[in-house]
Design a binder for these strands. Structure first.
Length: 432
RNA sequence: GCCGGGAUGGGGUAGAGGGUUAUCCUUGGGGACUGUGGAUCCCCGGACCCGGGUUCAAUUCCCGGUCCCGGCCCCA
């Protein structure tokens, strides 16, 4: 009898689990260094939580079922609704609230490159201030995490603003901004002909088509945002204010990172709840789907509760991040303490060996103790294959003299030390 | 949910236009080496994805399913 892994799920063996959790730990540390606090949430929520704002499409792609009490529940497909639920359940929290988490999320759909049925998403949000400063901090946090992981220069943060696009589409005479967004979202994936016809269907005036295409094709320099827009339409006060805010956000974000920050009018994001700045981060070579995405969603708490709390945040899945990290040769087992394998050369020395192992662990080292009762040569072979830095040999000879023989597995050199001088000696040993 | 391509020991593979110990490498365990490791040699373990059909005979051909890879839809 054999069991197979479920479709779209992963087994993480040590060689992959260690790099993965090391990356998450890096993100965790960076978020904490920004003053964000970690939270966690249930893996199961009522399905109703997603009906509110996410719509049928998302709900149809959830791992959901009816529980024994007759409730419709689902494995969470995204973090944000839970985070907002938690936030609004507490009225005592001083603003701004800056939270991060990295839950597992589930979606029931066909697996493909960069998308599986279960993934881990690093999520960070700021609740309270509706300021360019908060927007910039979220973008800065996302970029800093990627920089710290070692991806500096490998990605581009592409930024847009929903209000800007709505205002632009309005001045251009679009009838239905939301359906036009859906078409704009596909700009880079479909042919120009398809784009034109879909756009017209969405109620966008044909005579403005070239202007819109001009905008979509001329992302780029944030400093020229106003100039670019002026080429296609007049900038009134409303539009001017929005542009001013984006400019301010970008100049603040610029201080956080030297990574590529560009305006991209084709980034509108699918979710309907975004209300302001939206952004996605792409691999600079364009090999993968987006690495992370986020934006401002000021209306969600109002939809879900009696509170009105502005919010901005982002989510980063682990799957695309892993593909990019592998390409950049960053998928490595992280540095760790010196590793010792304690080899037991005689049964009489077993307890002596255990005691030494305990001391090593207490001193912060990694100590592996023979539990197979194999021959000394087999123990050494194993220590060597498993990549231990040193073998400690303990047998009758060592036991008698209260000594320990330490063998450097990379050079083969060894010496005997007294038990008491070992630990002091260790601090001077060079890590392999 | 739909479309295309795949599936041979843990990993990587060979194979035959059906035919009876299924190839090689690697990995794993043990030994030569009863107190000294990655070399060498020896021994051992381990596979034709599942179900049905055609056939005297199927790992090979056919159908269905499962899973993998990729794409659509959608993007959390």
């Amino acid at each position: 009898m054999t069991f197979e892994r479920l479709r779209g799920f992963r087994d993480l063996f040590p060689e992959d689990a260690e790099p993965k959790f090391f990356m998450l730990k890096t993100a965790d540390q960076v978020a904490a260094s920004f003053g964000f606090q970690r939270i966690d949430m249930p893996s199961l929520e009522t399905l109703e939580l997603y009906r509110l704002k996410s719509g049928d499409e998302l709900v149809s792609q959830t791992f959901s079922f009816v529980d024994k009490g007759g409730r419709e529940v689902t494995m969470i497909p995204e973090a944000t609704p839970s985070v907002v639920r938690m936030l609004t359940s507490r009225k005592d929290l001083p603003k701004p609230v800056k939270w991060y988490c990295y839950p597992k999320l589930w979606r029931y759909e066909e697996p493909q490159s960069g998308r599986l049925r279960e993934h881990i998403q690093f999520n960070a949000d700021i609740f309270g201030p509706d300021t360019p400063d908060a927007d910039a901090e979220i973008i800065g946090l996302a970029a800093t995490i990627l920089d710290r992981i070692g991806l500096e220069g490998q990605f581009s943060v592409r930024i847009n603003d929903r209000r800007l696009m709505e205002a632009l589409l309005k001045t251009m005479g679009a009838r239905n901004a939301i359906s036009t967004f859906a078409v704009i979202d596909k700009f880079k994936k479909i042919s120009r002909e398809e784009f034109s016809s879909h756009l017209t269907e969405s109620g966008f005036p044909e005579d403005q088509l070239t202007n819109l295409v001009f905008l979509l094709e001329n992302p780029g320099n944030p400093a020229k945002l106003r100039e670019t827009i002026e080429k296609v339409t007049a900038v009134d006060d409303n539009l001017g204010n929005i542009i001013g805010r984006i400019e301010e956000t970008l100049s603040l974000a610029r201080v956080y990172t030297s990574s590529d920050l560009v305006i991209d009018f084709s980034v509108v994001r699918g979710l309907s709840y975004y209300t302001g700045i939206v952004f996605e981060v792409f691999d600079i070579k364009g090999e993968f789907r987006s690495i992370l995405g986020g934006g401002r969603y000021d209306n969600l708490s109002k939809l879900m509760s009696d509170q009105d709390i502005p919010a901005v945040g982002f989510g980063m899945g682990d799957v695309v991040l892993e593909m990019l990290a592998r390409r950049q040769d960053l998928w490595k087992v992280p540095a760790r303490p010196t590793r010792f394998s304690v080899c037991v050369a005689s049964d009489k020395a077993r307890e002596y060996s255990l005691d030494l192992s305990k001391k090593l662990r207490e001193a912060g080292y990694i100590a592996n103790m023979d539990i197979s009762r194999r021959s000394l040569s087999a123990q050494l072979k194993n220590a060597s294959i498993q990549g231990y830095d040193y073998a400690l040999l303990l047998g009758d000879r060592e036991l008698e003299k209260s000594e320990v023989t330490i063998r450097d597995l990379s050079t083969g050199q060894q010496e005997s030390l007294s038990n008491t001088s070992l630990l002091s000696k260790l601090s001077s040993l060079k890590k392999k």
